[in-house]
Computed example of a mutant assay.
Amino acid sequence: MLVSQDLPERHHPVAWVLLVHGLAGSSERPGVRRLAGLFLHWGFGVWRLNLRGAGAGRKLASGTYAAACNRDILPVLVAARERARALPLFGVGLSLGGTVLLNALLERPDGLDALACVSSPLDLDSCSHQISWPRNSFYQRHMVRSLINQTKADPQFSSDCQARELMNTSIVRANVDKIRTIRDFDAVITAPRWGYKDVDCYYRDASPLQAMLNGAPLPPAFFVQALDDPWVPADSALGLASAQLPLDAKFCLPQQGGHNGFHSVADSQLNPSSSWADRQVVEWLLQRCG
Protein backbone atom coordinates (compact mmCIF):
# COMPACT_ATOMS: atom_id res chain seq x y z
CA MET A 1 0.00 0.00 0.00
CA LEU A 2 1.08 3.54 -0.72
CA VAL A 3 0.84 6.43 1.73
CA SER A 4 1.28 10.11 0.83
CA GLN A 5 2.64 12.36 3.58
CA ASP A 6 1.64 16.02 3.89
CA LEU A 7 3.37 18.33 6.40
CA PRO A 8 2.33 21.79 7.60
CA GLU A 9 4.70 24.45 6.30
CA ARG A 10 5.70 26.52 9.29
CA HIS A 11 5.85 24.27 12.33
CA HIS A 12 5.88 20.72 13.57
CA PRO A 13 2.53 18.91 13.48
CA VAL A 14 0.20 19.32 16.45
CA ALA A 15 -1.04 15.77 15.73
CA TRP A 16 -1.15 13.23 12.91
CA VAL A 17 -4.18 12.20 10.88
CA LEU A 18 -4.49 8.98 8.88
CA LEU A 19 -6.96 9.84 6.12
CA VAL A 20 -8.66 6.97 4.23
CA HIS A 21 -10.64 7.27 1.01
CA GLY A 22 -13.93 5.58 0.11
CA LEU A 23 -15.05 2.95 -2.40
CA ALA A 24 -13.43 3.31 -5.84
CA GLY A 25 -11.38 6.22 -4.48
CA SER A 26 -7.74 6.97 -3.73
CA SER A 27 -5.52 9.39 -1.87
CA GLU A 28 -5.76 11.77 -4.83
CA ARG A 29 -9.53 12.21 -4.86
CA PRO A 30 -10.58 15.88 -4.62
CA GLY A 31 -12.46 15.40 -1.34
CA VAL A 32 -9.47 13.68 0.27
CA ARG A 33 -7.04 16.36 -0.86
CA ARG A 34 -9.42 19.16 0.17
CA LEU A 35 -9.77 17.76 3.68
CA ALA A 36 -6.02 17.18 3.93
CA GLY A 37 -5.48 20.83 2.98
CA LEU A 38 -7.74 21.99 5.80
CA PHE A 39 -5.87 19.80 8.29
CA LEU A 40 -2.56 21.25 7.12
CA HIS A 41 -3.96 24.75 7.57
CA TRP A 42 -4.61 23.94 11.24
CA GLY A 43 -1.18 22.42 11.81
CA PHE A 44 -1.87 18.69 11.48
CA GLY A 45 0.38 16.28 9.66
CA VAL A 46 -1.54 14.03 7.28
CA TRP A 47 -0.99 10.55 5.92
CA ARG A 48 -3.28 9.89 2.94
CA LEU A 49 -3.59 6.12 2.61
CA ASN A 50 -4.29 4.20 -0.58
CA LEU A 51 -6.00 0.96 0.32
CA ARG A 52 -4.81 -2.24 -1.38
CA GLY A 53 -4.90 -1.83 -5.15
CA ALA A 54 -6.07 1.79 -5.05
CA GLY A 55 -4.59 4.74 -6.90
CA ALA A 56 -0.86 4.83 -7.51
CA GLY A 57 -0.44 1.81 -5.22
CA ARG A 58 -2.15 -0.55 -7.68
CA LYS A 59 1.07 -2.24 -8.79
CA LEU A 60 2.45 -2.66 -5.28
CA ALA A 61 0.17 -5.55 -4.28
CA SER A 62 -2.25 -8.02 -5.78
CA GLY A 63 -5.94 -8.05 -4.93
CA THR A 64 -8.27 -5.30 -3.76
CA TYR A 65 -9.43 -3.97 -0.41
CA ALA A 66 -12.57 -4.76 1.58
CA ALA A 67 -14.67 -3.17 4.31
CA ALA A 68 -12.83 -5.42 6.76
CA CYS A 69 -9.20 -5.70 5.65
CA ASN A 70 -7.54 -5.77 9.06
CA ARG A 71 -4.49 -7.72 7.98
CA ASP A 72 -3.67 -4.74 5.77
CA ILE A 73 -4.75 -1.93 8.09
CA LEU A 74 -3.43 -3.05 11.47
CA PRO A 75 0.23 -2.97 10.35
CA VAL A 76 -0.40 0.53 8.99
CA LEU A 77 -1.73 1.64 12.38
CA VAL A 78 1.32 0.16 14.13
CA ALA A 79 3.70 1.92 11.73
CA ALA A 80 1.78 5.21 12.03
CA ARG A 81 1.90 5.01 15.83
CA GLU A 82 5.67 4.51 15.73
CA ARG A 83 6.15 7.50 13.44
CA ALA A 84 3.75 9.74 15.36
CA ARG A 85 5.83 9.16 18.50
CA ALA A 86 4.31 11.17 21.36
CA LEU A 87 1.85 13.10 19.19
CA PRO A 88 -1.85 12.15 19.03
CA LEU A 89 -2.75 9.84 16.16
CA PHE A 90 -6.23 10.28 14.70
CA GLY A 91 -8.10 8.58 11.89
CA VAL A 92 -10.60 10.02 9.43
CA GLY A 93 -12.50 7.75 7.08
CA LEU A 94 -14.60 9.01 4.19
CA SER A 95 -17.47 6.66 3.30
CA LEU A 96 -16.08 3.07 3.20
CA GLY A 97 -12.78 4.36 4.59
CA GLY A 98 -14.54 4.93 7.90
CA THR A 99 -15.89 1.38 7.86
CA VAL A 100 -12.39 0.05 7.22
CA LEU A 101 -10.97 1.95 10.20
CA LEU A 102 -13.89 1.00 12.47
CA ASN A 103 -13.35 -2.69 11.75
CA ALA A 104 -9.63 -2.37 12.49
CA LEU A 105 -10.34 -0.60 15.80
CA LEU A 106 -12.87 -3.22 16.82
CA GLU A 107 -9.94 -5.63 16.76
CA ARG A 108 -7.42 -3.18 18.20
CA PRO A 109 -9.12 -0.29 20.04
CA ASP A 110 -5.81 1.38 20.91
CA GLY A 111 -4.84 1.68 17.25
CA LEU A 112 -5.95 5.32 17.11
CA ASP A 113 -6.59 8.02 19.70
CA ALA A 114 -9.83 9.07 18.00
CA LEU A 115 -11.74 8.41 14.80
CA ALA A 116 -14.07 10.49 12.63
CA CYS A 117 -16.32 8.80 10.07
CA VAL A 118 -18.11 10.75 7.35
CA SER A 119 -20.99 9.02 5.52
CA SER A 120 -19.57 5.63 6.52
CA PRO A 121 -21.59 2.41 5.99
CA LEU A 122 -22.27 0.58 9.23
CA ASP A 123 -24.53 -2.08 7.65
CA LEU A 124 -23.20 -3.18 4.25
CA ASP A 125 -26.26 -5.17 3.19
CA SER A 126 -28.64 -2.23 3.57
CA CYS A 127 -26.20 -0.04 1.64
CA SER A 128 -25.95 -2.51 -1.24
CA HIS A 129 -29.75 -2.52 -1.53
CA GLN A 130 -30.09 1.26 -1.37
CA ILE A 131 -27.38 1.99 -3.91
CA SER A 132 -29.24 -0.28 -6.35
CA TRP A 133 -32.30 1.98 -6.34
CA PRO A 134 -33.03 3.38 -9.83
CA ARG A 135 -32.17 6.93 -8.74
CA ASN A 136 -28.60 5.78 -8.04
CA SER A 137 -28.05 3.89 -11.31
CA PHE A 138 -25.69 6.46 -12.83
CA TYR A 139 -23.46 6.57 -9.75
CA GLN A 140 -23.45 2.81 -9.32
CA ARG A 141 -22.38 2.31 -12.95
CA HIS A 142 -19.57 4.83 -12.47
CA MET A 143 -18.26 3.10 -9.34
CA VAL A 144 -18.57 -0.38 -10.84
CA ARG A 145 -16.58 0.71 -13.89
CA SER A 146 -13.88 2.11 -11.60
CA LEU A 147 -13.74 -1.07 -9.54
CA ILE A 148 -13.57 -3.28 -12.64
CA ASN A 149 -10.74 -1.18 -14.08
CA GLN A 150 -8.94 -1.43 -10.77
CA THR A 151 -9.34 -5.22 -10.84
CA LYS A 152 -8.13 -5.53 -14.42
CA ALA A 153 -5.03 -3.51 -13.51
CA ASP A 154 -4.17 -6.09 -10.83
CA PRO A 155 -0.78 -7.67 -11.64
CA GLN A 156 -2.41 -11.08 -11.11
CA PHE A 157 -5.22 -10.44 -13.58
CA SER A 158 -2.98 -10.59 -16.64
CA SER A 159 -0.54 -13.11 -15.17
CA ASP A 160 -0.46 -16.88 -15.47
CA CYS A 161 0.92 -17.28 -11.96
CA GLN A 162 -0.98 -19.24 -9.34
CA ALA A 163 -3.49 -17.02 -7.57
CA ARG A 164 -3.03 -16.60 -3.85
CA GLU A 165 -5.19 -16.01 -0.81
CA LEU A 166 -8.31 -17.76 -2.07
CA MET A 167 -8.62 -15.66 -5.25
CA ASN A 168 -9.31 -17.86 -8.33
CA THR A 169 -8.02 -15.66 -11.13
CA SER A 170 -9.59 -17.70 -13.91
CA ILE A 171 -13.06 -17.31 -12.35
CA VAL A 172 -12.51 -13.58 -11.98
CA ARG A 173 -11.43 -13.27 -15.61
CA ALA A 174 -14.52 -15.15 -16.74
CA ASN A 175 -16.95 -13.11 -14.67
CA VAL A 176 -15.54 -9.62 -14.26
CA ASP A 177 -17.27 -8.21 -17.35
CA LYS A 178 -20.62 -9.58 -16.13
CA ILE A 179 -20.53 -7.40 -13.03
CA ARG A 180 -23.29 -4.78 -13.04
CA THR A 181 -23.75 -3.78 -9.38
CA ILE A 182 -21.69 -3.24 -6.25
CA ARG A 183 -23.20 -6.44 -4.86
CA ASP A 184 -22.07 -8.33 -7.99
CA PHE A 185 -18.55 -6.99 -7.51
CA ASP A 186 -18.48 -8.04 -3.88
CA ALA A 187 -19.83 -11.50 -4.78
CA VAL A 188 -17.30 -12.13 -7.56
CA ILE A 189 -14.25 -10.26 -6.26
CA THR A 190 -14.35 -9.06 -2.65
CA ALA A 191 -15.92 -11.98 -0.77
CA PRO A 192 -13.77 -14.78 -2.24
CA ARG A 193 -10.65 -12.65 -2.15
CA TRP A 194 -11.01 -12.07 1.59
CA GLY A 195 -12.06 -15.63 2.47
CA TYR A 196 -15.82 -15.23 2.95
CA LYS A 197 -18.19 -18.04 1.99
CA ASP A 198 -20.36 -15.68 -0.06
CA VAL A 199 -21.40 -12.06 -0.31
CA ASP A 200 -24.05 -12.41 2.41
CA CYS A 201 -21.42 -13.64 4.87
CA TYR A 202 -19.13 -10.79 3.85
CA TYR A 203 -21.81 -8.17 4.38
CA ARG A 204 -22.75 -9.63 7.75
CA ASP A 205 -19.27 -10.14 9.16
CA ALA A 206 -17.69 -6.96 7.76
CA SER A 207 -20.45 -4.64 9.04
CA PRO A 208 -19.31 -2.96 12.28
CA LEU A 209 -22.79 -1.98 13.49
CA GLN A 210 -23.67 -5.08 15.52
CA ALA A 211 -20.33 -5.17 17.33
CA MET A 212 -20.78 -1.54 18.34
CA LEU A 213 -24.34 -2.19 19.50
CA ASN A 214 -22.96 -5.07 21.56
CA GLY A 215 -20.72 -2.60 23.38
CA ALA A 216 -17.36 -3.41 21.79
CA PRO A 217 -14.72 -0.90 22.96
CA LEU A 218 -13.60 1.86 20.62
CA PRO A 219 -11.63 5.09 20.99
CA PRO A 220 -13.60 8.36 20.96
CA ALA A 221 -15.55 8.55 17.71
CA PHE A 222 -17.36 11.18 15.67
CA PHE A 223 -20.01 10.19 13.13
CA VAL A 224 -21.24 12.60 10.45
CA GLN A 225 -24.21 11.20 8.55
CA ALA A 226 -26.75 13.11 6.48
CA LEU A 227 -30.32 11.90 6.83
CA ASP A 228 -30.82 12.31 3.07
CA ASP A 229 -27.75 10.24 2.08
CA PRO A 230 -28.84 8.44 -1.12
CA TRP A 231 -26.35 5.57 -0.76
CA VAL A 232 -25.89 4.94 2.97
CA PRO A 233 -29.17 4.61 4.91
CA ALA A 234 -29.17 6.81 8.00
CA ASP A 235 -31.06 4.20 10.06
CA SER A 236 -27.86 2.58 11.32
CA ALA A 237 -26.36 5.84 12.59
CA LEU A 238 -29.71 6.87 14.12
CA GLY A 239 -30.00 3.52 15.91
CA LEU A 240 -26.45 3.72 17.21
CA ALA A 241 -26.97 7.29 18.39
CA SER A 242 -30.13 6.36 20.31
CA ALA A 243 -28.69 3.21 21.90
CA GLN A 244 -27.66 3.38 25.55
CA LEU A 245 -24.00 2.49 25.06
CA PRO A 246 -20.78 3.23 26.94
CA LEU A 247 -19.29 4.36 23.62
CA ASP A 248 -17.61 7.78 23.75
CA ALA A 249 -19.18 9.06 20.55
CA LYS A 250 -20.60 12.22 19.07
CA PHE A 251 -23.19 12.10 16.29
CA CYS A 252 -23.82 14.86 13.80
CA LEU A 253 -26.96 13.97 11.80
CA PRO A 254 -28.05 16.90 9.62
CA GLN A 255 -31.17 16.69 7.49
CA GLN A 256 -29.21 17.39 4.31
CA GLY A 257 -25.75 16.76 2.97
CA GLY A 258 -26.05 13.80 0.63
CA HIS A 259 -23.25 11.25 0.55
CA ASN A 260 -20.00 12.87 1.67
CA GLY A 261 -21.22 16.15 0.23
CA PHE A 262 -22.25 18.80 2.78
CA HIS A 263 -21.54 21.72 0.46
CA SER A 264 -22.93 25.24 0.79
CA VAL A 265 -22.75 28.46 -1.19
CA ALA A 266 -20.18 29.76 1.32
CA ASP A 267 -17.64 27.02 0.53
CA SER A 268 -16.03 28.91 -2.34
CA GLN A 269 -15.45 31.94 -0.10
CA LEU A 270 -13.43 29.98 2.44
CA ASN A 271 -9.66 29.86 2.57
CA PRO A 272 -8.70 27.10 2.40
CA SER A 273 -11.65 25.64 0.53
CA SER A 274 -13.62 23.12 2.56
CA SER A 275 -17.06 21.64 3.04
CA TRP A 276 -19.24 21.92 6.13
CA ALA A 277 -18.38 18.33 7.15
CA ASP A 278 -14.66 18.99 6.69
CA ARG A 279 -14.88 21.83 9.18
CA GLN A 280 -16.89 19.78 11.67
CA VAL A 281 -14.29 17.00 11.62
CA VAL A 282 -11.31 19.34 12.00
CA GLU A 283 -12.99 21.24 14.83
CA TRP A 284 -13.75 18.01 16.69
CA LEU A 285 -10.17 16.75 16.35
CA LEU A 286 -8.76 20.12 17.42
CA GLN A 287 -10.76 19.67 20.62
CA ARG A 288 -9.23 16.22 21.06
CA CYS A 289 -5.79 17.87 20.92
CA GLY A 290 -6.71 19.91 24.00
Rank of each mutant, 00 (worst) to 15 (best):
V100A: 03
L253C: 07
A56H: 05
E283D: 13
P75N: 13
H41I: 09
R81C: 06
L238P: 00
R52N: 06
E165H: 11
H11C: 07
D177F: 12
V265Q: 14
D235A: 15
R83W: 05
R83E: 05
V281D: 01
D278P: 01
L101R: 03
N136M: 06
V20N: 09
E165G: 05
I131K: 05
R34G: 05
F222G: 00
Q280Y: 07
Q287G: 11
S207H: 05
A54K: 08
P217G: 10
V176M: 04
N168G: 00
Q255T: 13
W47F: 10
A79Y: 06
Q210M: 05
N168Q: 08
A36R: 10
A226G: 03
A66V: 09
A163M: 11
H41N: 04
G93M: 14
P8A: 12
G195Q: 09
L102H: 00
V224N: 01
L101I: 03
A68R: 14
L105K: 04
G55Y: 08
L227D: 01
A206E: 09
Q269S: 12
R204F: 05
S132N: 12
W16I: 06
S242A: 15
A277F: 05
D125I: 06
R204M: 05
A61Y: 09
G37H: 14
R81F: 03
G45F: 10
G97Q: 02
L51H: 04
V176L: 14
G55N: 05
W276L: 12
P8Q: 13
D6W: 12
N260V: 15
N214M: 12
L124D: 01
D228C: 11
T181I: 04
P272S: 11
D177Y: 07
W42D: 13
L89W: 08
R85D: 13
R10S: 13
R52H: 10
D177M: 14
N103T: 03
S146A: 15
N175V: 01
G31I: 12
N260D: 13
A226F: 07
S119Y: 06
L87K: 14
S268H: 01
L74D: 02
W42M: 07
L112K: 01
P220K: 02
L166H: 13
T151M: 13
W231F: 15
